[in-house]
Amino acid sequence: MISLIAALAVDRVIGMENAMPWNLPADLAWFKRNTLNKPVIMGRHTWESIGRPLPGRKNIILSSQPGTDDRVTWVKSVDEAIAACGDVPEIMVIGGGRVYEQFLPKAQKLYLTHIDAEVEGDTHFPDYEPDDWESVFSEFHDADAQNSHSYCFEILERR
C-alpha cells in the first residue's frame, strides 16, 4: 500500500524555501509514529532540507540527478522507488510537492495534518478530489505552549 503523509496549511501550503513555516512538535511526533519502520520516499529537495537519513526507516530518494550519499537509496523513477521498498505492507511518501503529485494517483491512504495557519509558501500539496477519499480518523488539537497553531490529524482512505 502506498501512503502519503503531509502537513498542510491553508491553501495546501506545505513548504517555503525548503522548510515548513510553522513550529508543531506534535506533528513531528505524528510523522515519526506513522513512518517508523517503514520505507520513506522523498525528493532530493526534501532530502536536502532534512540533511540526514531518517533513523529507523529505509530512505529512498527520487531524483533525476541521483546523489552520492550511500546512506540512502537513490532512484530515478516512481517504479524504481516502489521496487526499492521491497515487499512491505506500507510505503510512506513524505514529499515534496512534485513527489506527492507523482504518487497521489497510486496512493491508497493519506495521513494529513491540517494546520490552521495562513502562511506564504512556494510548495503545495497537490489538489485531490475529496469525494474519492473517506475520512477514517480525525483528531483536532488547539494551539498550545509547544505548538504554534491549532491542527487536525486526519487519515483518508481511497474509496
Rank of each mutant, 00 (worst) to 15 (best):
P66E: 13
N37M: 14
E129M: 13
K109L: 13
I115E: 04
C85R: 01
A19N: 15
L110T: 00
I82K: 04
D144T: 05
S49D: 05
L8H: 03
G51H: 13
A145M: 08
N59F: 06
K32S: 05
H45C: 05
Y128Q: 03
V10C: 04
Q108R: 10
S150D: 07
Q65K: 11
K109S: 01
E157C: 11
V88F: 14
A143G: 07
E139S: 07
M92C: 15
H45I: 02
E134Q: 11
E48S: 15
R12M: 15
F153W: 04
P130N: 12
V13H: 02
G97V: 01
E118G: 13
V10Y: 05
L112P: 02
D142R: 08
M42F: 15
I50A: 03
I60P: 04
R98T: 06
D69I: 09
L4I: 15
K38E: 03
S3I: 05
K32V: 07
P39S: 06
D144A: 05
D127C: 13
R44D: 03
T46A: 02
A81G: 05
L156D: 00
K76D: 13
D122W: 01
D11S: 08
V93S: 01
I5A: 00
D69C: 13
P55S: 14
P55A: 14
C152R: 13
A19V: 03
L112S: 01
T123L: 02
A83Y: 11
Q65P: 04
V13P: 00
P53F: 13
E120C: 10
N147L: 02
W30N: 13
S148P: 00
T68R: 12
M92Q: 04
L24C: 06
V119P: 09
W47V: 05
D142A: 11
A84Q: 06
V75F: 06
E90G: 01
D87Q: 12
S135K: 13
V13K: 01
A26M: 02
N59S: 12
M92P: 00
E17N: 05
L62S: 01
W30Q: 06
S148G: 01
P89N: 09
H141R: 06
A81V: 05
Y128R: 08
N23W: 06
M20P: 00
V75P: 02
S77V: 08
M20T: 01
K106S: 11
A19T: 10
N34A: 06
T68P: 15
A7N: 03
A84N: 09
R158D: 01
Q108E: 09
N147G: 03
V40I: 11
E157M: 08
I61R: 00
G56S: 10
N59T: 13
G56Q: 09
W133Y: 12
P25T: 13
S64K: 14
V13C: 05
E80W: 05
E17A: 06
N34E: 07
W133F: 13
P53D: 10
Y151I: 10
G56E: 08
G97K: 04
P39I: 06
D127V: 13
I82W: 05
P66C: 09
I94C: 04
E139Q: 06
Q102S: 08
V13A: 05
E129W: 10
S63M: 04
Q65T: 15
D70K: 13
S138D: 06
E90Y: 01
Y111L: 07
T123C: 04
L28K: 00
H114S: 12
F140N: 13
A83K: 08
I5F: 04
D69F: 09
A83S: 10
L36C: 03
V99G: 01
L156E: 00
R44K: 15
D144S: 07
F153T: 05
T123Q: 03
D116Q: 15
K109Y: 03
P130S: 12
A83R: 08
I41T: 02
A6I: 14
R44L: 04
L54N: 00
V78D: 14
V99H: 14
T123S: 07
V13F: 05
N23F: 05
A26G: 03
K109M: 10
F31E: 01
A9V: 08
R159A: 11
P126G: 04
F103P: 06
V88A: 12
T123P: 00
L54T: 01
Y128L: 05
L112W: 01
S150L: 04
L8T: 12
I115V: 07
K106R: 10
I115P: 03
D132T: 13
I2K: 01
Q102C: 12
D11G: 12
C152E: 07
W74I: 10
D79Q: 09
I14C: 10
E139M: 06
E139H: 08
G15P: 02
K106F: 11
G86W: 05
A84C: 11
P105V: 07
V72Y: 15
S49W: 00
L8K: 07
P39Y: 10
G86Y: 08
S135R: 15
N37V: 09
Y100C: 02
P89D: 06
R44Q: 07
D70T: 15
I94V: 08
V88L: 12
S77D: 15
D79C: 09
A19L: 05
R98A: 11
P21Y: 00
L156I: 12
L36K: 13
K38R: 12
N59C: 14
E80Q: 10
P126S: 06
L24R: 00
K76G: 12
D69V: 08
L28D: 00
R44T: 10
Q102L: 14
S138P: 00
I5Y: 01
T68S: 13
D142I: 09
D132A: 10
P39C: 11
M92F: 15
G121E: 00
E120Q: 11
F153Q: 03
P53L: 15
E80T: 09
F137A: 10
V10T: 03
N18C: 06
H45A: 15
R158C: 06
A7G: 02
I82S: 04
P66K: 13
E134R: 11
L62K: 00
P89E: 09
Q108S: 10
S138K: 12
Y151S: 05
R159E: 10
I115G: 01
D142N: 09
D116G: 14
L156V: 04
H45S: 15
P126I: 09
K58D: 10
E134L: 10
L62W: 03
F153M: 08
V75G: 04
G67F: 07
P126K: 05
L62G: 02
A81I: 03
E17T: 02
N37S: 08
T68C: 15
Q65G: 07
V13Y: 01
A26P: 06
F140E: 12
D69W: 09
S138V: 09
V99Q: 01
S77H: 14
W30F: 15
Q146P: 05
D144R: 03
E90N: 03
K58V: 13
K106T: 12
L36D: 05
K58N: 11
H141S: 05
A6C: 14
F137E: 08
D116T: 13
M16W: 08
A83M: 11
G97T: 05
V72S: 11
L4C: 02
G67I: 14
D69A: 11
K32W: 02
G86K: 07
H149R: 07
R52S: 15
V136K: 10
M42E: 01
G67N: 13
Y111K: 00
V88R: 09
E17W: 01
V10F: 03
P55K: 12
V99S: 08
F125G: 02
G51A: 10
N18E: 07
Y100H: 01
P25H: 06
L4G: 02
A143W: 06
H141C: 04
G95K: 02
E139A: 07
F31A: 00
S150T: 06
L156G: 00
D122Q: 01
E17M: 02
G86E: 08
S148L: 01
P53I: 10
P89V: 07
Y100M: 03
N23R: 09
L8W: 04
I60H: 03
V75D: 00
I155H: 03
K58S: 11
I50S: 01
E48M: 13
P130Y: 08
A84F: 11
P105F: 08
R44P: 01
N37W: 11
K38A: 05
V40N: 03
S135Y: 12
V119R: 11
T68V: 11
T73P: 06
V40S: 06
E80M: 08
L156S: 07
S135E: 12
V119F: 02
P126H: 04
Q65N: 12
R33A: 13
K38M: 04
E139R: 06
R71D: 11
A83N: 10
L110V: 06
P21H: 02
P55T: 12
D87I: 09
I50W: 02
F31L: 05
P66D: 08
R158E: 03
K106G: 08
T123A: 15
L110A: 02
S138F: 04
C152I: 09
M42W: 00
C152M: 10
E48H: 14
I91R: 04
R12I: 02
G121Y: 01
A143P: 05
D11R: 14
A145Q: 09
